[in-house]
Design a protein around this nucleic acid. Structure first.
Lengths: 206, 206
DNA sequence: ATCTTTGTTGGCGATGTGTCAATAAGCTCG
DNA sequence: CGAGCTTATTGACACATCGCCAACAAAGAT
């Protein structure tokens, strides 16, 4: 019998093992909610003792944080390469780019971004907020604002990104909107944002 | 010694007891993330055996669902009473009303709405989506659309509500925007939405 | 072939959760 | 006023998961 009921234990480079476990964890957390994924599941699926998961990632939440971090990491993109001279053209271009990126990673990206809080956990929140902030900054840069557009403008851009994710959900998950509908409204909203911001940089009349 | 180290067991009406436990649970889930709240905590704070919590609410998740449901249940409001004749006036009014409601329950409301998924749990998602849907419908009604504005429009309104919550966060939690800034951008965005929707009801040119 | 390093394992203790039979609080009726 | 009854409430049991750590062994070094 060549049946190896006891799979010989194999020794991997730390980086390789870590990455392998992380890959398994990403798949699991993408399919089931946090609470329904046990480290035992991940360990078994990775063909590894549960203790090893803790060894590499510490806490279960730490593992989850790493997963979300990876899921939300998008190619920093070439903002400089956004085409168009007029604001409407540039708005169209950046929205189109955003929709391309999101639709490419659709399931995992949306799963991570809508994890929006894991019921208010500060650490998870922070990771997500950082990702949103990066996206918001990219949008502002692409729309011609400098490297430091001011806190108020960044806040508005973050809220705009919030609307973008909501619309992406409607398009990709609920299928209640077409890509064109999403594109049209997001582009128009972005222009409204820019306009409103320009008319009252520190708030209306302040 | 009048010290009662063993507080005599009190018998309450089921409704009263249920409501009392729920109140305690609301406070706890509003302060700490789901995972860090144990049913033992809730039971002890309510001066009750842990088993009783399960007796009244079933699972811990069921309890949490009830909490979120209560937190997101906003007075159905008098949408009919929204003042203003022109769209800009009505937009201003409804945004103002929304901001009033949110700021009144600020912490608990935001905690519930940003629980956005409890890391992807379908049940929690559904409760939140229902609340968002109700809010979206109210906005559309107030803006003069009929009782059945069509699926596409409802989807856009839901995404708009998503932006509203993002901006509420920026205002109430991060303090990065003033109420006036939030009001101005949300009102302008709402007008843009209405305009975009009217110019292409089934999507641009469809 | 033996030593050394360190990736890996398996189990212990603690904590949290759902369930259920046993208990007693408070009302009713004799 | 006391016995009986209903049922709100308790306490403990069984099970699952988690973080930790000492012991083990795979693969390169000597």
């Amino acid at each position: 019998m060549s049946l190896r009921s006891a799979p010989i234990r194999r020794r991997l480079e730390p980086d390789a093992r870590r990455e392998q476990i992380l890959a398994v964890a990403i798949r699991h957390f993408g399919e089931k909610p946090y609470a329904e994924v046990s480290t035992t599941d991940v360990a078994r699926a990775a063909g590894v003792a549960r203790g090893l998961v803790n060894h590499y990632f510490g806490t279960k939440k730490d593992l989850y944080l790493e997963v979300v971090r990876v899921m939300l990491t998008v190619p920093p993109m070439a903002v400089a390469g956004i085409p168009g001279d007029t604001p409407p053209e540039r708005a169209d271009a950046i929205v189109g780019w955003f929709l391309d990126v999101v639709s490419r990673h659709s399931t995992s990206w949306l799963a991570a971004i809508t994890a929006g809080g894991m019921a208010g956990d500060p650490d998870v929140d922070q990771v997500i907020e950082e990702a949103v902030d990066v996206a918001a900054a990219a949008v502002l840069r692409a729309m011609g604002f400098g490297e430091d557009p001011g806190e108020a403008l960044r806040a508005m851009a973050r809220a705009y990104v919030g609307m973008c994710t909501s619309m992406a959900r409607e398009w990709l998950q609920r299928d209640s909107l077409s890509r064109e509908q999403v594109r049209a409204l997001l582009a128009a909203t972005l222009l409204t944002l820019v306009e409103t911001a320009r008319s009252g940089p520190g708030g209306p009349l302040s």
